[in-house]
């Protein structure tokens, strides 16, 4: 019968393909996050005339467009002055830069989150997919919910980080989301870029 001759060949092919896929699986490059363009941001949404909110720590952030729902913990900076991020073993948490304003106060509030962790994509993996006009909802410790609308999404090399645009003063209530992006430098264990989302409070 014909299958008596072909079956060993089929079995051998399955075995070799299976071994090959396992090899690929063990050595594959991990999924890479999206990479937005790199130039200066523009405010596309004029800030409506909203009364500024008092200071209250943010507790949750929701970004429906990229399916993000995350708890927020306060973060500062380490002794070298580098921004802290939530621990890598809790990659679904976002951090709020507590030395800046809180979301809803006049000024730039800053949230930071991991793009990935050893367990795979993390809370802000899809940040680079955000587009102008999409909304970010922040729930605060005083139970108030404030909504920001994305103005722009940009990538910056870490050594040319737009410090003033992210942490500097602002005359409206604004929000900046930060994560990593661009090429992953295996030698240093770091991404070469930061992705920054610029948003303005609209509700």
């Amino acid at each position: 019968m014909w299958w008596r001759r072909t079956l060993p060949a089929v079995v051998a092919l399955l075995g070799v393909t299976g071994l090959g896929l396992i090899t690929v699986g063990l050595t594959a490059d991990p999924a890479r996050p999206p990479r937005p363009p790199a130039h200066a941001p523009t405010r596309t949404h004029p800030a409506p005339d909203l009364p500024p909110m008092p200071r209250a720590a943010p507790v949750r952030v929701r970004i429906p467009a990229i399916d993000v729902r995350a708890e927020i913990v306060p973060v500062g900076a380490d002794a070298a002055g580098v921004l802290e991020v939530p621990p890598l073993d809790r990659p679904r948490l976002a951090g709020w830069y507590r030395h800046g304003v809180s979301p809803g106060e006049t000024g730039n509030a800053v949230l930071v989150g991991h793009v990935d962790s050893p367990a795979g994509p993390a809370v802000f993996f899809d940040l680079g997919h955000l587009r102008a006009g999409q909304e970010i909802e922040v729930t605060r410790a005083d139970a108030q919910v404030t909504t920001f609308t994305v103005d722009d999404v940009r990538a910056y090399p870490k050594d040319r980080f737009p410090t003033a645009l992210v942490y500097g003063p602002a005359d409206v209530a604004a929000l900046r989301l930060i994560t990593c992006g661009g090429r992953f430098d295996a030698a240093t264990g770091n991404y070469v870029d930061n992705i920054v989302v610029f948003a303005t409070r609209t509700a």
Binding site: G25, D29, R32, P118, Y156
Partner: peptide, 29 residues
């Protein structure tokens, strides 16, 4: 703070999809 944020680890260097498919094929073989 100085510079950007160290907000990534480079991800998981194993492709679980390929591992599962490879395991299934090898098992069938």
């Amino acid at each position: 703070p100085i510079g950007g944020a160290p907000a990534g680890s480079g991800g998981d260097s194993r492709d679980t999809g390929a591992l599962a498919a490879g395991g299934t094929l090898l098992g069938t073989a």
